[in-house]
């Protein structure tokens, strides 16, 4: 059983082409990203234990699109909640004290809670889809130190550019540079 789990957790070795630079200082990593992007390496991946605003700016990351997915979920939830109230009260009319069947205040509670529920679920699904989670196949070499205190910059490139990128990363203060492929 344990052997099976171990086998499951050990994926087949993947072949990557590019250079991984491992940094300790945040400002070094941010400057390296800026320089690499200036040199034409736009498809960088940066790994870090926490997000760093300096690196985000250097990468010129825009806001996440997850908000539109969440908005769609909320809209669907509110509409669905009100529709459920409307349909159910029409399908099984319960007249209480001669009051209106279509009563907006109580329907608002159901509509509101449904809006939050579906917006929350959409937010989750949107985040997972956009962040490409669950990640079944690695997109770059991974190092557990990225969950501790190191920042990794992955520069995908062909063998002809390896030496130049390695030199750039070392010049920007990388503690360690690994060449793949």
């Amino acid at each position: 059983m344990m052997n099976l789990i171990t086998k499951l957790l050990t994926p087949a070795p993947q072949k990557f082409h590019g250079v991984m630079g491992i940094f300790y200082y945040v400002d070094d990593a941010a400057e390296a990203v800026t320089q690499l992007r200036k040199a034409g390496h736009k498809d960088l991946q940066v790994f870090s234990p926490v997000p760093h605003h300096e690196i985000e700016h250097a990468l010129e990351q825009g806001p996440s699109l997850v908000r539109w997915v969440t908005f769609g979920g909320g809209l669907l939830g509110a509409t669905g909640g009100f529709a459920l109230c409307w349909y159910s009260i029409q399908s099984w009319p319960m007249v209480i004290g001669g009051k209106e069947l279509f009563s907006i205040p109580p329907f608002t509670v159901i509509g509101y809670e449904s809006m939050i529920l579906l917006a929350g679920l959409a937010n989750l699904l949107g985040m997972l889809a956009l962040a490409r989670l669950p990640q079944l196949k690695a997109t770059a070499p991974y190092d557990p130190r990225f969950q501790e205190d190191k920042i990794g910059i992955w520069v995908p490139c062909g063998p002809d550019a390896n030496a130049r990128v390695e030199q750039m990363l070392k010049g920007q203060g990388a503690e360690e540079v690994q060449v793949h492929g």
Binding site: V46, S48, P49, P51, V66, A131, Q135, A138, F146, Q147
Partner: peptide, 15 residues
């Protein structure tokens, strides 16, 4: 399968 990649953090904090 979280790796701490920049695009993961971006959508994580967005969400």
């Amino acid at each position: 399968g979280w790796t701490g990649a920049n695009f993961q953090w971006k959508h994580f904090y967005g969400a």
